[in-house]
């Protein structure tokens, strides 16, 4: 009898260890969902975010058979008092062609600010085909009190862009990240 109990307990113990491993695995999986989601978005464009690293423009064939209209929208979020406008509201481009659009920012307040621009594309699928070789949204953008600046964004559209997309919108929202940028600066300094 007690031998049997002993066996049973060993058996139970082994199974419990396996199950607890699943539990920890799934807890880890919840956090793994964060990078997985990003990868998933990069593949499917599910959330309409463009890549946050610079693309390289080489050996891209320009497709002159169709024209894509790109619309730019600029917004500043709560707590971000800058003026922020796109110099071009709408442009028509050929896929594969290199383009530049400038964005104007002005900090007319008496305080220094650091901004972060967050891009968003609609329809989201188009985000996969927007390749930026240079963008102010890759980095924090500091402006001292009263400063203004022209921020360039260079991009081309991947000629692989699905034929049914003829028009898309690229929005930048400017966030005030002064506080967190200072923390980072302090940690590095």
């Amino acid at each position: 009898m007690s031998n049997q109990t002993q066996d049973m307990n060993q058996k139970n113990g082994k199974l419990v260890i396996k199950l607890v491993a699943i539990v920890f695995g799934m807890f880890g999986f919840a956090f793994a969902l964060v990078p997985l989601y990003e990868v998933f978005c990069e593949i499917t464009g599910i959330n309409g975010k463009t890549s946050d690293t610079a693309a390289v423009y080489e050996a891209v064939e320009v497709d002159r058979s169709r024209v894509i209209t790109v619309e730019f929208i600029t917004r500043t979020n709560t707590g971000m008092p800058w003026e922020f406008t796109a110099q071009t509201r709408k442009i028509e481009v050929y896929p594969g062609e290199m383009n530049q659009v400038d964005f104007y920012v002005k900090n007319s307040t008496a305080k220094d600010y650091v901004a972060q621009a967050i891009p968003s594309v609609s329809p989201g699928t188009a985000a996969l085909y927007v390749n930026k070789t240079e963008c102010f949204c890759f980095n924090h953008q500091p402006l001292k009190a009263g400063e203004e600046a022209l921020m360039p964004m260079k991009f081309y559209i991947d000629p692989q862009l699905p034929k049914d997309i003829k028009f898309f919108t690229l929005q930048y929202t400017l966030y005030d990240v002064t506080a967190s940028a200072q923390v980072v600066a302090m940690n590095q300094g």
Partner: peptide, 14 residues
């Protein structure tokens, strides 16, 4: 009041 406060419900009323 003018600029709001980032990360709170306080909006920019400008």
């Amino acid at each position: 009041v003018v600029n709001g406060k980032t990360g709170t419900a306080m909006q920019a009323f400008s």
